[in-house]
Design a protein around this nucleic acid. Structure first.
Lengths: 146, 146
DNA sequence: ATAATTAAAGGTAATTTTGTCCTTAATTAT
DNA sequence: ATAATTAAGGACAAAATTACCTTTAATTAT
């Protein structure tokens, strides 16, 4: 479904939302260990997340690391996908046809359409905060045997 | 969503179901041109489709090529995914967690679950025939400006 | 039988994705 | 100020996917 990069971006952001604050930043090493991802590759992805889209923040130096603001926690998951450039995923034709559209649909277009819309809805309505709160409770996550 | 290989497999099979019969087989060249795919790569994928799973058939030699039987047309699209080994796609955790399950769900598990089931339903209930008939009518396909 | 045609099969090459490493810049603590 | 720590950034490497090419096997038409 998603690329590894996107999976790591989602997992990392959820973990950061769970565990970090402006006064308690998380190091790359901790994050990568927690979400079971290769540290160096994860570094690249965290860079994307701190860029223009600014889902998360970072500071260098001792006691530096990554954190997320309360304001950013209110962003929908979609913003994470945008940050790693996988946001157009749900716009694409399921058969990969460039010209598939409402007026010239592919043979699966109208069957896939409602599913696509539910996917979009899922990522547009759920905030980082809402999802990260689930990870706190009886839900599986991270450092909890992936 | 799908890999290129799977997209080509779906498009090729739908096209073959549209155009071929036991008495009118389609060459690799025609199929690849029609579905806008690289011929050599498409050849590999068609081989997979003719293997054990046997979604389509082939014969070599003059007037040979690929075709699909009426019986095979009644198979669900899922069989195409199986043939190219992308059938487990819908079983996977959306966050890529190996241990995600009903009892230890990831934070997105229960939100993604109904969508996943609709995807499975889509590929299990629609037959190759049903979908290929759509491609005949006002639907976009193939040789029709991709 | 022979030649022509077509898919099968295998190896190779290009591209993309994933992953690593090393240097630089920023920040902090001393 | 200096040293230590941490992310940023760039170059590089490995792996996977996608794409190509050449030879072989099967089939058909002559």
């Amino acid at each position: 479904m998603f690329s590894k990069a996107t999976e790591y971006a989602l997992r990392a952001t959820i973990y950061i939302a769970q565990k970090s604050s402006i006064t308690h930043k998380l190091s790359l090493a901790e994050i990568a260990a927690a979400i079971d991802s290769p540290p160096s590759f994860t570094a690249k992805i965290l860079q994307l997340l701190t860029k223009d889209n600014c889902v998360i923040n970072s500071v260098r130096g001792p006691n530096g690391g990554f954190y997320i603001t309360e304001k950013s926690k209110l962003l929908p998951l979609k913003n994470i996908l945008e940050a790693v450039n996988e946001n157009d995923l749900f716009d694409k034709c399921i058969l990969g046809l460039k010209k598939c559209s409402e007026t010239k649909p592919c043979p699966l277009h109208f069957q896939y359409k409602p599913i696509k819309q539910e996917l979009i809805h899922l990522f547009q309505t759920n905030t980082i905060q809402e999802i990260s709160e689930k990870a706190d409770n009886e839900y599986l996550f991270i450092n909890n045997s992936i």
